[in-house]
């Protein structure tokens, strides 16, 4: 499993790519694999506030609903509406299927996130 090195990761299996005061968020390939076929995604509206470690949306498989947590706090500036109609994209390319972009509130929060290497180790241990 290749986890992009320029992403940061959470223990709840989200990835975040931080670019200045903008951050792009999705769920990891490991997350999509354990969820199975994703059938529905519920995402916030542009302008919504998200807080670190709090749920901002859900992903659904046939028999389960899972919360998606924000790696860091901020204001939603873009939502990937394409996923609403084609949630299967997350299964085929989790790291390329971003869910939301936010304007970061406190860049310092990112320091508690895992690097790709740490996350890979974390996933291996979790198994």
């Amino acid at each position: 499993m290749a986890f992009p090195a320029d992403f940061k990761y959470t223990k709840e299996h989200e990835w975040v790519k931080i670019d200045g005061d903008s951050a792009t968020i999705g769920i990891t390939d490991h997350a999509q694999e354990s969820l199975g076929d994703i059938v529905f995604v519920e995402l916030p509206k542009i302008g919504a506030e998200v807080s670190a470690h709090k749920s901002f949306g859900t992903v659904e498989s046939v028999k389960a609903v899972s919360d998606v947590y924000a790696p860091i706090s901020g204001t939603v500036t873009a939502v990937n509406d394409e996923l609403t109609n084609a949630p299967e994209k997350i299964n085929s390319d989790a790291h390329g299927s971003w869910m939301i972009k936010i304007k970061v509130k406190d860049a310092g929060e990112a320091s508690s996130l895992m690097s790709a290497a740490d996350y890979e180790k974390y996933v291996a241990e979790e198994k």
Partner: peptide
Amino acid sequence: LSTREQHIRREK
């Protein structure tokens, strides 16, 4: 669409 229902979503 059973993820709407109580046996999966429980209190939500």
